[in-house]
Simulated assay, not measured.
Amino acid sequence: MCLAVLTVTAASTERAEALSCPDDQVVIQTQGGGSHVFYVEVADDGPERARGLMFVEAMDEDAGMLFVYPDPRPVSFWMKNTLIPLDMIFTDERGVIVSIHENAIPYDETAIFGGEAIFSVLELNAGVSKAKSIEIGDVLLHPAYDFYTSLPCDAK
């Protein structure tokens, strides 16, 4: 009996490791079955979220910033002191995309409302979401969502 418990525990550990997501990557799993990997900096506290991508002069096409909140809430962003145009991808607590704002204008202080129950926001270079056919209903995979989703980060 004890041997069986150890075997199940080892199998569970192997599965958990296979499902783990690197902290510095977000995989967007599209509804069409494709996936896109982005290398991200995570902003998960007040000062990091407040600074965001302000003053960043350039960003690689496969890079971005993931803003994570402790719980879902109404979220608005602006582009004050942001030098590069951005796409903003707003998700619920499961990592499901609920809205996308394309081509946010640098320095614009107009509020960009993402929704009432936003758990995270992924900022990418402007045009990337359209170029990669990222749509509402697609899913972000990252450790921030491990509690909410069972999809592996390497899903393809």
Score class of each variant (00 low, 15 high):
27 V>H: 11
60 D>E: 15
66 L>K: 13
144 A>D: 09
42 V>A: 06
132 K>M: 13
140 L>S: 05
1 M>L: 13
131 A>M: 13
15 R>T: 06
23 D>S: 15
113 F>Q: 12
109 E>C: 05
136 I>V: 15
83 L>W: 05
54 M>G: 00
52 G>S: 11
11 A>K: 11
55 F>K: 07
151 L>T: 03
61 E>S: 15
49 R>N: 06
62 D>M: 05
54 M>C: 07
78 W>T: 09
116 E>P: 08
5 V>A: 14
93 E>D: 15
153 C>N: 11
119 F>L: 03
62 D>P: 08
138 D>E: 09
93 E>V: 13
35 S>G: 10
108 D>R: 04
53 L>M: 03
85 P>S: 09
10 A>N: 13
43 A>M: 05
77 F>D: 07
58 A>V: 00
94 R>W: 03
151 L>F: 02
154 D>C: 10
14 E>L: 14
98 V>F: 04
120 S>N: 06
147 F>E: 13
129 S>G: 00
8 V>P: 05
83 L>M: 04
126 A>W: 05
128 V>H: 07
99 S>R: 12
100 I>C: 03
38 F>Q: 00
113 F>I: 10
141 L>C: 11
70 P>C: 01
121 V>N: 04
33 G>F: 01
44 D>V: 09
20 S>C: 09
53 L>I: 02
19 L>S: 01
130 K>R: 15
147 F>P: 04
29 Q>M: 12
1 M>V: 08
59 M>T: 07
153 C>R: 02
65 M>Q: 02
47 P>I: 04
106 P>V: 03
49 R>F: 10
